[in-house]
Write a protein that binds this DNA or RNA. Sequence first.
DNA 1: GTCTATATCTAGATAGAC
DNA 2: GTCTATCTAGATATAGAC
Lengths: 197, 197
Amino acid sequence: MRYSSTHKEEVREKLLATSQAIAKAGGFSTTGVDALMGAIGLTGGAFYSHFPSKQALFEAVIEREMANSSDMLAGDGSSAPDHVAKRLRGYLSTFHATHPEQGCALPTLGAEISRAQPEVRKAVEACLKKVHDNWAERVEDSDAAWALIAQCVGALMLARSVDSDKTRKEILAANRRFIDEAHSLEHPLQPPSGRQA
Amino acid sequence: MRYSSTHKEEVREKLLATSQAIAKAGGFSTTGVDALMGAIGLTGGAFYSHFPSKQALFEAVIEREMANSSDMLAGDGSSAPDHVAKRLRGYLSTFHATHPEQGCALPTLGAEISRAQPEVRKAVEACLKKVHDNWAERVEDSDAAWALIAQCVGALMLARSVDSDKTRKEILAANRRFIDEAHSLEHPLQPPSGRQA
DNA sequence: GTCTATATCTAGATAGAC
DNA sequence: GTCTATCTAGATATAGAC
């Protein structure tokens, strides 16, 4: 064959990586196959040597996204004691709010996931449960873990839905401060400066 | 003229109402003008007598959605003392999670809002601030109000992103219980039964 | 496996008859 | 104002040459 034995695997890998970023930035359904393939230097026709349909790519993208996020957020046995605080700080950062292509898939693709087939939502559910179960042992209880996840996802949506940088930063900072105040984390998200009324 | 003097206004009203529901259920960009017009018994060509472009309809839909939501959530001077608790209970209900077409626009259209023009996000920002400022006086402080809004929006996204009814209900219930526990609301969301560990 | 060309379909938007 | 017909553009997907 004219291509190396790992060629197909490499193309698939690049396609997935760039598709993830592009979909998170501009939405999956609103981006065409030609654009996704063009981003890795190929034409649209070659797409179907790697995926049977655009829908199949969506499923692969979401599963990779969620697996990635849950691995990172949940951590493992060797995680530092301030692991949760570190992840929360990064999640609720201005950088994350202004760079959706590098961030969590839920705030950007959550609506498309909601309308997707059961298999996709099953994968999302498994990853969410993984983060929840892990965090439930590091915060007050199970309820607090679900509340924390919800607050983070929602805060990012809010921060991206407003226009002014000032309001965006205020929403993120308020959410960080509230977590420090309401949750009994071992380590605070930010220095115990002042919480404003 | 062959149409009543209020005809155009009535059509516009119906178009907006159905477009809001359809967009929240299936996404705005993924729904065509023909489908939106067909839902009120007209054909696609007639659309442009009411809006100059599909984009203009999106702006009108979002502004109406947010104004509606913020009016309902913020309440007014005559609101009952348990107003916030009532709204939170309805927002974090299974009915809301399973009927996006009747619910808040942020969890379903938040991503599309994030990618929209500044004018749209300005309108969203104003409505969010209205709810925040109102709630800030009824909960602990400003931070708690932002955290509450974020938690609600995120909880609904999570509830809709999972597959099983059981997990969906658990996410919603956990978020309701956490609010009762962490926020000093005058009235609880649900009877002080048991909060599970 | 990738390319170009193409088939098919749908989208947003416009033109002209009624 | 609404309709049908149409223009133009873009989408998913397939076919056949290299």
